[in-house]
Every structure is written in structure tokens, then in C-alpha cells.
Design a protein around this nucleic acid. Structure first.
Lengths: 67, 67
DNA sequence: TACCAGTGGGGTAATTAGGGGC
DNA sequence: AGTGTCCTAATTACCCCACTGG
């Protein structure tokens, strides 16, 4: 087995996102609730975040907000 | 094209499903035990999962379980 | 037959969700 | 309005060893 890679996009755990932003994991959860961050849920209810989105936000790309 | 393809449904290994959800393979096993995920067993007892179901779950479609 | 990464099974520690209050 | 902290319950991660898949 080797060429079996079912298109999986890289995801991050709440703790990883929190570390990258230097905030509390709870704050990341609030961002997700507020719709500022896309969240994907595990079957147990835990959140996972898109790495590409997080890095784009970290890079200074504003969150489509012009006012 | 192939002339004879015996109802081959794409299946995923626990490790593949775990990668897609960014969880531990053991966690996928717990989902199967809890009935949150359809599991197909090999003759040796190892689990395999339906790729279509996994993708649907990742996309946010709730599990269609009776009620 | 043997090899070996992956898996199943248990147990136990670490994260996370959620609400509440500062 | 936004963040950090405290709390409990639920979920997940990491540890072991034995067996399966190819």
C-alpha cells in the first residue's frame, strides 16, 4: 500500500491553533462559534480547523471585513 | 474499461480515516464501537470503513441512524 | 516459514466542550 | 466586546502486548 491517499486536507487541533496565535484554546473555540473560523467536528464533537485557513489568517490576511 | 468489476466499494483503513479527521486510529475504532461509523470486518477481525460514509461525515452530514 | 507495519484489546493520562463568572 | 480562568463531563491520546494483512 502506498498510492492510497484519499484527498485529506490538513487539519489542526484547538491546542495547535491556540499555540500559533498565542491565545487560550477557549478563545479559538469562541472564534469558531462566532463564525470567524471554519470548524470541522469529529464524531465526538471536538473541533478541528483547516490549516490553510489558519495560516492565511496568521499571515495577516484580513477576514473579509472592510468596515 | 473493466468488463467485470464485482461491486467494489472503496474502503478505507483505520489509519486513513484517522488522518482525514486528524484523530488517533484508536478513536476511529471507538466510533465504530459506538455505532457512529459503519464498520466492515476482515476475516481476521480488522475494521474497514466506507469511503463515501467517511466523506459525508467530514462534510457535516449527520449519520442517518433510524431516528 | 518469517518479516513488519498496522490493528485490536485494555487501561490511564491529557484535551476539549460547555456553562458560568470575572 | 473580547479574553483568561474555574469547574464537570465527555472525548481523545498514549501506553502496553498479541494478532492480522500483504
Amino acid at each position: 500500500m502506498s498510492t492510497r491517499t484519499p484527498e485529506a486536507e490538513p487539519l489542526l487541533t484547538p491546542a495547535e491553533v491556540a499555540t500559533m496565535f498565542r491565545v487560550d484554546p477557549k478563545t479559538v473555540t469562541r472564534w469558531a462559534k462566532a463564525g470567524k473560523l471554519t470548524s470541522i467536528r469529529t464524531l465526538g464533537g471536538h473541533r478541528r480547523y483547516r490549516e490553510t485557513e489558519v495560516r492565511a489568517l496568521l499571515a495577516g490576511i484580513p477576514n473579509q471585513r472592510s468596515e
